[in-house]
């Protein structure tokens, strides 16, 4: 009895972990593309936020969640392009550009949201086709009753929303693109030693723009997931620092796709725990305050960045604008 109860809790926690880690995975891979090409992207947060807003708006008015995703991607790519222009064409400080875009996103979403819907920045709730629904994988109901495997397949692996599966597919895809294609070779070269690409007669800037825009697409999907899958409308500051946590996960993963997946699942698990068990009782002696469990993902981010994980060496040229030497 006790055991099955615990097991059900575990299934519930794992299911939530998967749901919550999707945003982190997509954002983390976005950061991976960008930083592997030498552009530091602290603006993952802002891109996701603006994408979440416009995807909610588009989904609401069109009644179609996929149109919402496209709108989110478009909004996020616009921000990515601004970041690209600032840091590639005008050799600006990439940190400052990212921070500015984050502020711009938190301001714009509320200003526009208020002007259009007058609900304190919220967008109207999404229902029906405007939201993604859960996809039941084949045989889910059939094997549900099998011990362990059954619930794991039926409730954790099956029954997720489309973007969840997409996110988990993007991980191997990212690996393949980076390490098996010409595009990936050049992208990594640009992040390590842009001069090597430049002397080969290939545009460093074009390669970097491509990477930044891919980051825009992935953040767009992440933001759309927040507003149309995880929640059912846009709410102000709904990204809640996940863009920064994704960056910490990226460092933790040492800029490698599969490690990034693991790191994001870990953070997702943490968030799931703090959502499911806000008041953890320690042997009935005292209960951990809810504020602490809420702050737990942030605290762990700091702990991980403190480098109790070995040394993380970023791509050599990351953060440096490329200027031909004289």
């Amino acid at each position: 009895m006790e055991l099955t109860e615990t097991f059900l809790q575990l299934i519930l926690t794992l299911d939530m972990t998967v749901r919550l880690s999707v945003v982190l995975i997509l954002a983390c891979l976005a950061g991976l593309f960008s930083e592997r090409a030498g552009i530091v992207d602290i603006g993952l947060e802002g891109k996701m936020l603006i994408a979440a807003f416009f995807s909610a708006v588009a989904a609401y008015h069109s009644g179609n969640a996929w149109i919402g995703v496209l709108a989110g991607i478009a909004a996020s790519m616009t921000f990515a392009l601004i970041h690209g222009i600032a840091s590639i064409a005008y050799r600006g400080n990439q940190l400052i550009s990212g921070v500015a875009l984050n502020f711009l996103a938190s301001g714009l979403t509320v200003v526009i949201g208020n002007a259009w819907y007058k609900e304190g920045g919220r967008t109207p709730p999404l229902a029906g086709e405007a939201r993604f629904s859960e996809i039941t994988l084949p045989f889910a109901d059939l094997i549900r009753d099998l011990p362990v495997i059954g619930p794991l397949y039926a409730d954790v692996i099956s029954g997720q929303k489309a973007i969840v599966y997409l996110a988990f597919l993007v991980v191997p895809l990212t690996w393949w693109v980076l390490f098996r294609t010409r595009f990936g070779l050049r992208l990594r070269a640009v992040g390590e030693n842009p001069a090597s690409v430049d002397t080969a007669g290939i545009s460093v800037n074009r390669q970097r723009y491509a990477a930044v825009l891919i980051a825009g697409v992935l953040c767009g999907i992440a933001g759309a997931y927040l507003a149309t899958s995880q929640a059912a409308s846009f709410g102000r500051e709904m990204t809640a620092g996940r863009g920064y946590i994704a960056l910490a996960a990226l460092i933790f993963a040492k800029w490698r796709p599969f490690y990034a997946l693991m790191a994001c699942l870990l953070f997702g698990l943490l968030e799931a725990i703090s959502n499911l068990y806000p008041n953890i009782d320690v042997f009935g002696i005292f209960s951990i305050p809810v504020q602490f469990t809420q702050a737990l993902p942030y605290i762990l981010t700091v702990v991980i960045l403190a480098g109790f994980i070995g040394k993380a060496i970023p791509p050599k040229a990351s953060g440096e604008p490329y200027i031909k030497e004289r």
Binding site: R188, E192, N193, S196, V197
Partner: peptide
């Protein structure tokens, strides 16, 4: 030198002179 330090010799040689979108044949 304009070499990518964590690439292999082969990868450095083909960088920018690849024959197609996939690396294997190059």
């Amino acid at each position: 030198f304009k070499l990518v330090e964590n690439f292999t010799v082969l990868e450095n040689v083909i960088l920018g002179a690849e024959d197609g979108a996939l690396l294997k044949p190059s």
